[in-house]
């Protein structure tokens, strides 16, 4: 359906022969900043340690410079995660406060690209690194900051791995050096499943493609093959007919994850929010699972695969 909307833009293109576009400064809604929580808890081989970031919203129409980025982070929050009768208190670490050796370790553990840290990122982590996710368990999050209490809960679902991966040739000679990568899965029939995937090329760092989530009412209990699109670098302009393709010689990492319904809704609305603009579109409010704020507290169970495109 989303694609139909997009395809309807093709007709819009026809009309755009006549169209004219101008930048303007719209009315700015005067709203106080809201608190945004983002955090993940994972179950899988080499899972990242659980971490939380707490930031604030910024008014849309402004040039946002490094200063503003640094002020984004909300400090001195009390953050706890609990599961059953176990509770972990997360401690804030800011990049600038860390000794070099620890920075290297954090980079290694978190998989964060060192280049992406141009300002003082602050995260809340379990200093003992004992807080690791387990399938089938529910983790409650509580954030107390600036006289506010934000809560959330996420469940790490049982994982459905990919059975196998396959490379697909394209029908024209001009694309002989490009391939699609498809995966096979066998979706369990007895439960509602929500999936998300990430891909990486020639690097262990994986990113989500534009449409990274799917749920299973349409294929519940079936075994089938489906494409795993390459995640294009952000803000890149990719030719339409090369979208999602891998080049011969690429080493491709696929991370395949299960998530719960609320976590899926967050990403589903997040991705639709990004595309639901244009001549016939409306708007989409991102469905947060954080009570009292914006953002997401999400559990994943995942598996990772490597394939070399030939």
């Amino acid at each position: 359906m989303k694609n139909i909307l997009r395809f309807s833009f093709l007709l819009g293109l026809y009309l755009s022969l006549f169209s004219c576009e101008r930048a303007f400064v719209p009315e700015i809604a005067d709203a106080p900043p809201e608190i945004v929580v983002e955090g993940y808890i994972e179950a899988g081989v080499d899972a990242q340690p659980t971490f939380i970031t707490i930031t604030k919203t910024l008014p849309f129409f402004q040039e946002i410079g490094q200063d503003a980025f640094e002020k984004l982070y909300v400090n001195d929050a009390k953050v706890t995660v609990s599961e059953g009768d176990r509770t972990w208190e997360l401690i804030e670490f800011c990049w600038d406060d860390l000794p070099d050796a620890v920075r290297q370790q954090v980079l290694l553990l978190s998989g964060i690209d060192a280049d992406s840290i141009a300002f003082n990122i602050c995260v809340y982590v379990d200093p003992t690194f004992q807080l690791l996710g387990e399938e089938g368990k529910t983790y409650d999050l509580k954030v107390e900051v600036e006289d506010k209490v934000l809560t959330s809960s996420t469940t790490i679902p049982f994982h459905t791995p990919i059975d196998s991966l396959v490379q697909i040739d394209l029908p024209v000679d001009s694309l002989a050096l490009w391939k699609e990568v498809h995966g096979f899965i066998s979706d369990p029939a007895d439960r509602a499943d929500y999936y998300r995937y990430f891909t990486g090329v020639n690097s262990p760092i994986v990113r989500p493609p534009i449409n990274s989530v799917v749920n299973d009412p349409f294929f519940n209990g079936q075994s089938f093959q489906f494409p795993l699109a390459k995640a294009e670098p952000r803000d890149s302009m990719i030719a339409f007919d090369l979208y999602g393709l891998y080049q011969v010689g690429d080493t491709v990492t696929i991370r395949w994850a299960n998530l719960d319904a609320a976590h899926y809704e967050f990403w589903n609305t997040f991705e639709f929010n990004a595309v639901n603009q244009g001549p016939f579109s409306s708007y989409t409010r991102i469905a947060s699972n954080i009570e009292g704020g914006l953002g997401v507290w999400g559990g994943y169970s995942f598996s990772e695969y490597l394939i070399i495109v030939e």
Binding site: V36, T57, F60
Partner: peptide, 11 residues
């Protein structure tokens, strides 16, 4: 419906 604010998710 106007945009009100921006916030950081997944960098």
């Amino acid at each position: 419906t106007p945009l009100q604010s921006l916030y950081l998710i997944d960098q």
